[in-house]
């Protein structure tokens, strides 16, 4: 396309936005809201996925040892655990280590701590990691049958539930995003249709003097893309500010929830939102012109 036509298109689309200012603002805000909701879902889904992965990586099976088991027996249990299929790592936790961990959790409960410090009631244990979640349950069962093992804990349920919730939210998010995309295309297409209608004489004359369809379409597509991009800018700013604030608040108040840091997450999301705005704008305006360009 020539630079003159490029300038012509931009000038025409600005004219359209100005003539149709209120409707343009309304549709840009609708796009902003839709992209904001979509972006929120994106952030939630990404963070839940992150959480689930972290949880999965944490201790999967804890094997508690009888206090009467001699060191030799402890080494035997360790060797047997390491030989089990899928087991990648086996860590020993001594009675003192276990007590220290307990102290960290119950730092404020002085009575309890005083009591357990007199006579440590905690078992020695092995923390066993597997390469895949499917290996957790068989490993736990086999470990329970080993000589000197009193109890086996595993968090399969929690992890399963976390993954199930993540999957459900991901599906719901996708459905909502598709619905929002359709809504955005429709509102933009309606807004552009108003501009098209207001300029039907102009379009008629353009056709009369031999303008091509592409040339006639371009200013409107341009206008749609500007609307989409404006909405995307709103949404990106709101998401950026909101997430940065939420991240800080969680760090201070709920430090054990490991939210992903703002970067590079927000930059990626902004690019995605901007792209969606442009695409939605272009598709919306192309739709509203289809009927008008039939000879």
């Amino acid at each position: 396309m020539r630079s003159t036509s490029l300038a012509f298109g931009v000038r025409q689309s600005l004219r359209g936005l100005r003539q149709n200012a209120l409707m343009s603002l309304a549709s840009a805000l609708t796009v902003a809201l839709s992209l904001l909701v979509a972006g929120l879902f994106g952030l939630i889904i990404i963070n839940l996925g992150h959480l689930a992965t972290l949880a999965e990586r944490q201790v999967e099976v804890t094997v508690f040892l009888n206090d009467s088991l001699p060191d030799q027996g402890v080494r035997a249990v360790e060797a047997q655990l390491k030989a089990m299929p899928g087991v990648t790592q086996v860590d020993f936790v001594s009675k003192d280590e276990a007590l220290n961990r307990l102290k960290a959790v119950f730092a404020n409960d002085k009575d309890l701590l005083a009591e357990v410090e007199q006579q440590n009631p905690l078992y020695r244990s092995f923390e066993v990691h597997t390469d895949q979640p499917e290996h957790i349950q068989p490993t736990a069962e086999a470990a329970g049958k080993l000589n000197g093992v009193v109890k086996v804990n595993y968090k399969q349920d929690l992890i399963d539930r976390l993954f199930r919730v993540t999957r459900a939210i991901r599906v719901a998010g996708l459905v909502i995003m598709v619905v929002l995309a359709l809504a955005m295309v429709m509102i933009i297409s309606n807004t552009i249709r108003i501009t098209v209608f207001a300029r039907r004489h102009e379009i008629g004359i353009m056709k009369l003097v031999g303008a091509t369809d592409g040339f006639i379409r371009w200013p409107f597509v341009c206008e749609g893309m500007v609307l989409g991009l404006a909405g995307a800018a709103f949404a990106a700013v709101a998401l950026w500010a909101g997430y940065s604030w939420a991240w800080g608040a969680v760090q201070r108040g709920l430090p054990f929830i490991p939210l992903l840091p703002g970067q590079p997450l927000l930059t990626g999301l902004t690019v995605l939102i901007g792209g969606s705005g442009v695409v939605v704008g272009a598709v919306g305006s192309a739709l509203s012109l289809r009927r008008f360009l039939r000879v």
Binding site: R2, S5, E202, I205, V209, F215
Partner: peptide, 26 residues
């Protein structure tokens, strides 16, 4: 069938602009 928001000059130039004539020609 003139465009009311354009001058006489711009109405005529419109026919060249929309057929992508070079600015010099216009």
């Amino acid at each position: 069938k003139l465009l009311p928001d354009r001058s006489a000059h711009d109405n005529v130039a419109f026919a060249l602009e929309v057929t992508e004539a070079p600015r010099r020609e216009i």
